[in-house]
Amino acid sequence: MNHSNAVQAHMHRDDYGAKIGMWLFLFTELILFGGLFIVYAVYRFTYGDGFSLASKELDTLVGMINTIVLLTSSLTMAMSITAIQQGRRRLSIGLVGATNALALVFMVNKYFEWTAKFHHGLFPGGKELLERTNGEILYFGLYYVMTGLHAIHVLIGMVIMTFMMVYLKTGHVNKDSFVKLENSGLYWHLVDLIWIFLFPLFYLIH
């Protein structure tokens, strides 16, 4: 470790430290979802047939559209950092805005998907669901919890993006100080990462 840097860190802001902190936080998020993935893995192992049956009721197309939407939002997010590094503030704002818009598309899509399921009585405690086998009940339980928790993260992400747009506008985040935007980006990519696994686990594997 170069100590002149460490000393500097005492006096100036420590972007490097901020990034370490953010990554550590992302690990906690990863493990938070990881716990759910463990539950999923165990139940798929125990109730392979029920899971297979239930997963066929999800619409792969909806899942795929949402995957593409999130991947694209990750792209715009990543590019917004390049933009601010080059000092192109307006472009950066536009890209963060695009990220936010795509997140909204994701949520709307999710909303229609969930309400359709609810209409079919496939919600926790719903009569339709309780008549099914244990494996299917657990599958839908996990489906709602995992995609729900993910959706909450998307919503939080949208709030963060809105703040970032304001910060970019006021110059609080600028060409020389953009670690906040970088960290928001890291968060957003993690949300994307989680979805990259949720998508095959719920929509693709039967």
């Binding site: 500097q8 490097y16 390049t82 970088e182």
Partner: peptide, 27 residues
């Protein structure tokens, strides 16, 4: 050595778009 690293790596838009295209194809 770090501290100034933030400014050292500006990743081009092209790289990102390539990765994005890769991600879409894998999807």
């Amino acid at each position: 050595d770090h501290g100034t690293k933030n400014h050292a790596h500006v990743i081009g838009y092209g790289t990102y778009i390539l990765v994005w295209l890769g991600l879409l194809s894998f999807t």
